[in-house]
Design a protein around this nucleic acid. Structure first.
Lengths: 338, 338
DNA sequence: TTAAGGAGAGAAAACCTTTTCTCACGCGAT
DNA sequence: ATCGCGTGAGAAAAGGTTTTCTCTCCTTAA
């Protein structure tokens, strides 16, 4: 049913082929208006046969809905926005909505250009996403003529913001360690100026108590390695579990422990954060890790911006999505519900 | 200069405000038609003042150009399409073109849906991208009404395909090792059924000679680790350099060497492939690695599809873009040109 | 038999922009 | 004085849909 010419088939062609007027054709295809059941069926059948697909530009011009949204991110290479994007795309494709990807590094001018390009193209809404929860994108989205949803980046005053519940995730991890019988749980994590770091740390503190100081550092293997070095260099009792601020740190921790002949998980349990498959699953032993559910976050962001675009109300504020614990072999025990 | 009402400002508003007709306004703004210089300036000034931006949908309806292209990928989480995407976006934003990101896992139905959605939205062209050069996307793009460019995935018969020159990249790496005085260079790499693997291996063979067998395995740290184990378990002379099929394998190799007390780069040089920052830069010591220039590839793909969309001819066939060697500390020596 | 009403379908406007065509006017040349 | 022409600017069509309005029949009830 391809059309041999290069010209796209329009509703005019459908109408002509079916021997009806354009308006009747349109109403038939959209299940609107009044007409004989037979006519409606015939139009639909013929439309299918000649491969008619409505021109979204024309439709959008009239309906003020382009079935298009923009995804703005400054996390070009990062592992955070990637699953978020996948989630957004997945949630919206069912609704016929396509996603403009706009990678603005940290360049305000570039951001501005992208936003304007999106508005020119009449996007129905914008999702702003980033690489950390407590930083803004370098572009002001607060007074746009379209709805904006923030996902994994800080939003403005009365905006809708979606984030993972890091405190709950941290609690999940530490409680799991406690349940396994660990009593001396250390926490090696990233820079203290990250909001997530502070949130995870205080949840850790709540559950694990004051037995070990929180160790702040950088988001790198080397820091995990080094921190273990300094803990084991000190005199006194050693931890029987280490809760790490991310998987890379955990990886460094595991390496450092192994170098000392300490067995994982028999002597020390290790838990990571992020559940970054490529690291967590390939560490020896594979890492138990907290998954922030970023894909789910993306899906939620997509549905939310869609709701706003359709005029359905959405309560503004910060919405936290739960994390889950992915159990592998680095801390013993078999399932988080056992 | 915001407009207080929610209504978007159209060229009607500009015309009214400037006291001219719509056609005159349009011609003034597009620098077409004939009119007094003063009129033209006044229209432009007023358009700027009231914040007029032309509606791309309406423009596209008429011009048959939507200034929109689609990027199809099945590498949702992968590290390959990510830089490709960044390159595409970067190249096209200057031309006012926005990019639809379509993540089709490996699902033909999903692919079909996305392609149809893109065509409905009148994309000017499509870039297909994947996670390996010798696999097709699970969707047929061979007879679409818009131009298609393949980047880092296999294209169809008479298509334009962009890929990295893996043979040249491998040669670069091995020649570098030779220049450093290494004579017994091993090659530990991925599965032999990857085209890139075979290509890299034969380039390796050309330069390094027949002194060590190529060791095929899987794309994982564990394989690098294991391969070193088996090499060092064998009797006979040991390699003084190892060229790895990717950075993860290299990472496993480095770990295994260190466990044996072998110094890097003093005793053995190691080179990786992919230059995956997050792995290469954080291995101890940081890995020298071959960079496939994926961002450049993306940029090139963007410009190519744009050229096709504008009717400028592009020679079909496979175009290989050069790799470059990123020198870090894992093989000694300081710069690839020294 | 006629008026009312409903069913089926088409005409036309609207969305916003670009482009082609037409028109009016003034000036220089005949 | 008239013709032609160049200049400045507006009218209208086009692009593909959707939607409202209108029109024509036909049926049914009075």
């Amino acid at each position: 049913m391809d059309n041999p010419t290069n010209k796209r088939v329009t509703i005019h062609d459908v109408a002509a082929a079916a021997g009806v007027s354009i308006s009747t054709a349109s109403k038939a295809l959209n299940n609107t208006g009044r007409m004989g059941a037979e006519t409606r069926e015939r139009v639909k059948r013929i439309a299918g046969e000649i491969g008619f697909r409505p021109n979204a530009l024309a439709r959008g011009l009239l309906s003020k809905r382009s079935f298009t949204i923009g995804l703005l991110t400054n996390d070009t290479y990062g592992r955070f926005t990637l699953p978020v994007m996948a989630g957004v795309s997945e949630a919206l494709v069912d609704h016929g909505v396509s996603v403009f990807l706009c990678a603005i590094e940290d360049d305000p001018a570039l951001g501005q250009i992208h936003v304007e390009a999106m508005l020119d193209k009449q996007v129905d809404g914008i999702i702003a996403s980033g690489k950390r929860m407590d930083r803004r994108l370098p572009v002001d989205l607060s007074s746009l003529p379209v709805p904006v949803v923030y996902a994994f980046t800080e939003g403005t005053e009365n905006s809708v913001t979606l984030r993972s519940d890091d405190a709950q995730g941290a609690r999940l991890a530490v409680e799991w360690l406690v349940k396994l019988g660990r009593r001396r749980i250390a926490h090696i994590t990233g820079p203290q100026d990250f909001f997530s770091v502070r949130e995870r740390a205080s949840a850790y503190r709540e559950v694990a108590g004051d037995v070990e100081p929180v160790r702040y550092g950088i988001w790198a293997e080397s820091w995990g390695h080094e921190a273990v070095g300094s803990i084991w260099a000190q005199p006194g009792e050693k931890p029987d579990a280490i809760f790490c601020g991310n998987d890379q740190i955990a990886r460094g921790v595991v390496d450092a422990l192994r170098e000392r002949g300490i067995r994982i998980p028999e002597d020390v349990s290790v838990v990571g954060f992020d559940n970054w498959e490529i690291v967590a699953a390939h560490t020896r032993p594979p890492l138990t890790s907290v998954d922030m559910g970023l894909k789910e976050l993306g899906r939620e962001a997509g549905l939310t911006v869609l709701a706003l675009a359709e005029g359905r109300g959405v309560e503004p504020g910060v919405r936290k999505l739960p994390c889950r614990l992915v159990v592998r072999q680095s801390c013993g025990g078999m399932s988080p519900t056992e």
